[in-house]
Structure formats: C-alpha cells, structure tokens
Amino acid sequence: MNPFALLAAALLAYVRPDPAPGLLMSKERSRQLECAVVTTQAAVERRPGQLAPEGSRGDMADRGAVLCSERLLRAGLRAPRDEAILSTLELRVSELAATAVSVRPDLSDRTWRVEPFHPSAQVSAKIAFATKNALMAHGAAVSDRLVTLAAGDVDVITRMAPDLAYPAACARYAANGSLGEGDALLAVVLRDPLETALHAGVCADGRWSWLR
C-alpha cells in the first residue's frame, strides 16, 4: 500500500461504517453480525473491490481484516433454542452423520432412516432433512420411509425416563417390523429443553446405542 493510500485509509477509518457499536451503529445491529478475523488476501478474494490488495512488494504496514456478515434473522424472531440449533444446523448434522458412519461401520450396508426428537415439529422437519442430506453426502443409503409405533406403545414409552424410552422405542420398531433387518435408524435427539446441543443414537436390530 502506498503512502497516499495509507493516509486515505486512515482518514476513511473515520467515515467508513465500523461494525462495532458507535455513532452510526447500534449495539443491537452490531450483535447481528457474525465476524471473522482474516488475512488481507482472504478478504480481497471474498469481497473483491472492497479492500486494496497487497502490493507486489508487500504493504508498508501489516494489515488484517475483520469480515462481517449480517445474520438473516434478527434476534427475537425465533425462540433462542431453535435459533441456536438452526443457525449451525449444517455443521451439527454433518458431525452427527460423520460420527454415525465412522463409529458404526458394521451398518454400512444398511439403509438409514432418520428420526428427529425435538419439541417443535417445524424444527424436527429441518433436522431430519439436513441429516438425510448429510448421510447421503457421506455415501450412505438413505430412505424417506418413516418408522412408526402403535398408539399403545407411544402411550407407554412417553412416560418412561429418556435413558429407558429410546431403547424401548428401538425394540418396538424392530418388533412391529417398522425397522427391518436391512435398516438402521439414526435418531437425532434434543434430550433436555435447556440445552442447545443435539445428540445422536442408533437403532439397529432392536438394539439402541448412543453415539454422542
């Protein structure tokens, strides 16, 4: 960067909008931003034209950049728990799918079914969709077929403690033929209403095991 540009950049620091709270940026808006500290080269590639690239002989001063993207949904539009899960859904389900495929190589020839356990039906559908795609991306065979329980089973299982309920449901899936010998079920579970993490369990041949 030449001296003129350096001086211009220093002066522009006063008029350019800074993502930090200040005269032109409210705290509320600033908190809507997801930011990362990156190198100048990465910033130039990701935001062409917005940052002067490094000169061929380097810059007079080392520079860095803070790249910010505004969250699509403002705080308050979704429940905090849903927002916490949905805002990092791709990362979470990719990890779960990778764990399922790597921890249970014995199920590699099975067809996977996915069942989410989350209080919100809408969020459950999102989790199931994303998990199926993540399993497919890891090379697994996946089916859209649902696993079902009889009304009586549901009545009994929903009264059980979580540590017993999931194995019991798994046994019933196998017993009623809903989950066949060639199938495996990946359950994505929110175990506690106050947590923001998702857990995974696998049901195959009527046996349940927690993955994480």
Binding site: R71, L73, L86, S87, L89, K132, V142
Partner: peptide, 23 residues
Amino acid sequence: VEAEGAWLVLRARLTRLTPDLPI
C-alpha cells in the same frame, strides 16, 4: 430453505415413490 446464521442454505432431495422410498 433455511436461514443458518448469515447463510441461506438450500437442501434438495429426490425420492423414488416405491414402497421403500429410497432417496
């Protein structure tokens, strides 16, 4: 389509409408 932080994510899948519903 889902809003995940600052990202808009589109997921699509095609399922064959046979009894096994394979994706």
